[in-house]
Design a protein around this nucleic acid. Structure first.
Lengths: 211, 211
DNA sequence: TAGATTGTTAATCGATTAACAATC
DNA sequence: TAGATTGTTAATCGATTAACAATC
């Protein structure tokens, strides 16, 4: 609806969750004010970058004093959508799906796990993280009963595209994808692949040891 | 030792694992040659970027013909260290630690899980993914018995820094960190945080729905 | 040879850092 | 007021895209 603050750069967006975490910690400690220098040092960015980032969506600081933590925290929370609550499902309840289902910090982020789906009849009916596993064939009807905001894909790469399509058709708003495939969808997708991540580390290790 | 190819840009490095995956798939299919246009399309980058990336560490293509897949695959594999084998331990065997321990694709990457550690006496002695969980107090002596290349941290954020220090002291070569804290260490660290990842997605979802 | 596709240079774009006037 | 620290402009740096001569 509104376009205030219009475009925040992608790099800044990727840092917002980190800012949020640190500000929340400070706020929980009851600290009210912090300078860009001090905050940047804790987070591990330059003060200049921090100020540039924050100025993309507001003017929070006070010359000579620094930033009011709780005010800043509220703004970033709003940007990230943390003032609303979100419903999430997970499709594919293997080891990774289970681990994500059991992730203890969704609550802090206002995300609620509402359903789990799997193809394995042996798993269907069992309970993980307090949520019953349903057969994947029930997905379309489930979407009709209760809306889903976030669809998490923890299936094999082969199954992922079909699952993404079911999610989009069902009205999910975004996809959190742990399967190593590029999904074709018009929904926003955040991709996270363990295998790619470890290879990036391996490159760094390998390079250091060759020099 | 050698410095051939010297510096590959960080952005290119982050794409190498993806290139590796796609090239491996093509190679497994027995395909021998591909143009930058075709490969880029599959991967989801521009042909120009792909060629710029590849030319940072060699000249593989043949004018008018494209790139020899297996040769390129071998080169990227070497860069990523996949021609060597690597030993990994995981510290903190909660849900996430278990899921990582059970990740089925380490073998393809020549990574072997050699030990698991936890502080919980109730877990110590039990077996996950075929590996016995040891008490974290045994870590220093374990490092003396068998070298560790990759130290994976799946502990609480509070414990992470101390674990990282034990890993560095023990001679680990790099740290794969799933705890949401910035580690102080001289080792290469690859950070992966579920909570940050989902917030990035949430931002995108939220932004779309506000417009 | 003609067609295709690379390697590479130049142009563009975006992100980071530095610097400092504005101001609490 | 004097000191501190912001908001913002300008300078730098790096990454992406476009274009095309080189060449298989």
């Amino acid at each position: 609806m509104s376009d205030e603050g219009s475009a925040i750069s992608p790099k800044t967006i990727s840092r917002l969750p980190i800012y949020w975490r640190y500000l929340k910690e400070l706020d929980d400690f009851g600290i009210e004010r912090i300078s860009s220098q001090e905050l940047a040092k804790r987070i591990g960015v330059t003060p200049s970058q921090l100020r540039q980032d924050l100025n993309q969506f507001g003017q929070f600081g006070q010359h000579g004093y620094g930033y009011p933590i709780s005010e800043l925290l509220i703004s970033i929370s709003r940007l990230l959508g943390l003032n609303k609550s979100w419903r999430m499902i997970i499709v594919g309840v293997g080891n990774l799906g289970k681990a994500i289902a059991s992730y203890p910090n969704f609550g802090k982020r206002n995300i609620k796990l509402t359903a789990l789906f799997d193809v394995d009849p042996g798993k269907v009916g069992t309970v993980v993280a307090g949520v019953k596993i349903r057969n994947i064939s029930e997905m379309p009807s489930f979407f009709k009963e209760q809306p889903v905001d976030i669809g998490t894909i923890c299936t094999t790469p082969e199954a992922a595209q079909a699952v993404a399509e079911m999610m989009e058709a069902g009205g999910a708003l975004g996809i959190w994808n742990f399967a190593p495939v590029k999904l074709k969808t018009s929904l926003p997708v955040k991709h996270l692949h363990l295998g790619d991540s470890i290879l990036e580390l391996l490159y760094c290790i390998n390079r250091r040891n060759e020099e």
